[in-house]
Amino acid sequence: MKIDPLRGPRTQSVKRKEQSGAAGSAFADALTGGSEPAAHTAAAPGVAALDALLTLQQAPDALSGRAKARKRGEQLLDELDRVRVGLLLGRIPLAGLRRLQVLLGEARPQSEDRRVEQVLAEIETRAAVELAKLGR
């Protein structure tokens, strides 16, 4: 077989049979506007999309607990660092001790990650020890 680069591939045209029947005519009627859909079915996709959006908003985010725990740990470490710097300078920062005490008094956010929970517990223990050493 010889391939001519100037001529494209030869294709045969396919003729389709006209289908008659319930499925074919109903589809054709819907395309031409022969049958009007009910008013409630037109609004259904909008309601379904809204329902899906509300469901997603209500679903708990696995990272939100971890992110809150991380933020709490960072806040505690920042306050501990301020206390350490204050001790090195020879003056105990009372405002930092109060903030540390308030942070320890707040409820700890729960995380699904056991390692995050363990690290946060160690940070809180260290902060409590520092407060106890400084007489608070």
Rank of each mutant, 00 (worst) to 15 (best):
D113L: 12
A38T: 09
A23G: 08
G105S: 13
T55R: 13
K68T: 05
E122P: 01
R82W: 02
A52R: 09
G21V: 09
L104C: 12
A132W: 00
G73Q: 15
G8S: 14
V85L: 15
G86N: 06
G86M: 09
G96L: 01
G90E: 05
E117R: 09
A121K: 11
E74Q: 12
L56P: 00
G34H: 02
L87M: 15
G96W: 00
A52F: 01
E122N: 08
G24V: 07
S35T: 07
T11H: 14
E74G: 05
L50W: 04
A59S: 13
H40S: 09
L76I: 06
E106H: 08
L56V: 01
Q57K: 10
L88F: 02
F27K: 11
G24N: 11
R114A: 15
A28D: 14
L97C: 09
K68P: 01
R91Q: 12
A62S: 08
A49E: 13
A67S: 11
G34D: 04
R115W: 11
L103S: 09
V85Y: 09
K68M: 08
E106G: 06
A28Q: 11
A26G: 04
I92V: 15
A44H: 04
G105P: 03
R108F: 00
E106K: 13
L97A: 05
A48Y: 03
D61C: 02
L56F: 02
I92A: 10
D51K: 05
G105V: 03
V129H: 06
E112D: 14
P109D: 03
P93E: 09
A132S: 10
R136Y: 11
P9S: 13
V102L: 10
R114P: 07
A67P: 00
V47Q: 12
R99I: 07
A95T: 12
R84Y: 05
L6K: 06
Q118K: 12
L63G: 10
M1D: 08
A42H: 02
A44V: 14
S35N: 07
R16C: 09
A43N: 04
I3D: 14
L103Y: 01
A62H: 02
P37A: 04
G46A: 10
R98F: 14
K17A: 13
P37E: 05
G65W: 00
I92Y: 04
L77W: 00
P60D: 14
D29A: 15
A42D: 08
A62Y: 00
R114F: 05
A38I: 03
R82L: 14
A127D: 06
L97Y: 01
V129C: 00
A107V: 05
L31M: 14
V47N: 06
V14K: 12
A59T: 15
R91T: 13
R70G: 10
E130N: 04
V47S: 08
V83T: 04
R10L: 10
T11D: 11
L31I: 08
E106F: 00
L6S: 07
H40A: 10
I3V: 11
E36K: 09
A107K: 10
P93G: 07
V119L: 13
E74N: 12
R115Q: 15
E117Y: 00
V85H: 09
S25G: 02
A22C: 03
R84C: 04
G96C: 13
R7Y: 04
I123Q: 14
R70L: 13
S25Y: 01
E36N: 06
R82Q: 07
I123K: 05
E112N: 11
L50A: 07
T41G: 01
G96Q: 10
K71Y: 03
L6H: 06
E79Y: 03
D113M: 06
T55K: 12
